[in-house]
């Protein structure tokens, strides 16, 4: 809570930063398909190398790219332990009480952890290398076919963009309210669960009031400037994909197809 979330945009001049937002989103989807269809340890090894290459190409620090994954180290540890000890009790190395660690369990645990870790790292590269406005346009472009069935793609993209931009503000707001409540005697650091829960509850109403006050101010400002929400279908021209975008898409499609075929 005391630190801002990882995955916020960091401007830089890199190959990944220069790609169009829509191409990056599509590439991300293709890579996700590839990761989900990987079933062997060498396959995950290749994905780790590819992810490292992506981080290098995006010129972001490994700490930024892997921050959210590293924060989940205890979760990963538990998943690995559970799979190791309970996945295949028929053929264990040793048997002790309820635990039956096995080779199959170890492999399964490594695969699950690797999959989640890779997905987190790739989504971080996408978020860190794409400006919120570019992301909004990309989402609007990819959602635009939904206009045919009356879904307001522009409004949805605007909502998602505003949400992304509000995350750091609300983090700060919540932290300030938390500090104020601590000064009034709330026990956020108490070792007792009940004290912690009781301390969090008075935090919620002020957080919601502050957040809705911001929503009120922003919506009034937008309406005063003539924005009425994109509820009507309207055609918007998007810039065509550049050679680099097509190349990235082709590469990602080839990698994903290879993993789907050797599955």
């Amino acid at each position: 809570m005391r630190q801002l979330p990882v995955g916020l945009y960091q401007p830089a001049d890199s190959v990944i930063h220069r790609l169009s937002g829509s191409a990056k989103l599509l590439c991300m989807l293709l890579l996700l398909i590839g990761v989900v269809n990987t079933t062997t340890l060498p396959g995950y090894g290749i994905w780790v190398l590819l992810t490292a290459l992506l981080i290098r190409l995006a010129r972001i620090s490994p700490g930024t790219a892997l921050g959210s994954a590293v924060r989940l180290k205890w979760f990963f540890g538990v998943i690995l332990f559970m799979n190791l000890c309970f996945y295949q009790p028929e053929d264990p190395w040793v048997r002790w009480w309820i635990f039956s660690p096995s080779y199959a369990g170890l492999i399964q645990g490594i695969q699950v952890v690797a999959r989640v870790f890779l997905l987190l790292a790739m989504s971080n590269v996408l978020m860190v290398s794409t400006a919120p406005l570019v992301m909004t346009d990309a989402m609007e472009r990819l959602l635009s076919p939904l206009r045919l069935i009356g879904v307001p793609a522009g409004l949805i993209a605007m909502i998602l963009s505003v949400a992304i931009q509000f995350i750091p503000t609300l983090f700060e707001e919540t932290d300030n309210i938390r500090k104020a409540q601590t000064a009034r005697g709330a026990r956020f650091d108490s070792p007792r669960l009940w004290d912690k829960a009781k301390a969090v509850l008075p935090l919620l109403v002020p957080v919601f009031l502050a957040a809705f006050k911001r929503a009120d101010e922003l919506s009034m400002a937008m309406e005063a400037r003539g924005y009425r929400g994109d509820t009507q279908s309207r055609k918007k021209k998007y810039p065509p994909f550049q050679t680099a975008d097509w190349l990235a898409l082709l590469l990602c499609a080839a990698v994903a197809a290879a993993f789907v075929m050797i599955r």
Binding site: M158, V207, F212, R214, S219, R228
Partner: peptide, 23 residues
């Protein structure tokens, strides 16, 4: 209004990220 509903929705989506961190 539609604009206010959209912004409230955006705020609530952002709170979906922030509140679990508070807990």
């Amino acid at each position: 209004t539609v604009v206010k509903k959209a912004i409230i929705t955006a705020i609530c989506i952002a709170l979906c990220v922030v509140l679990p961190q508070a807990f």
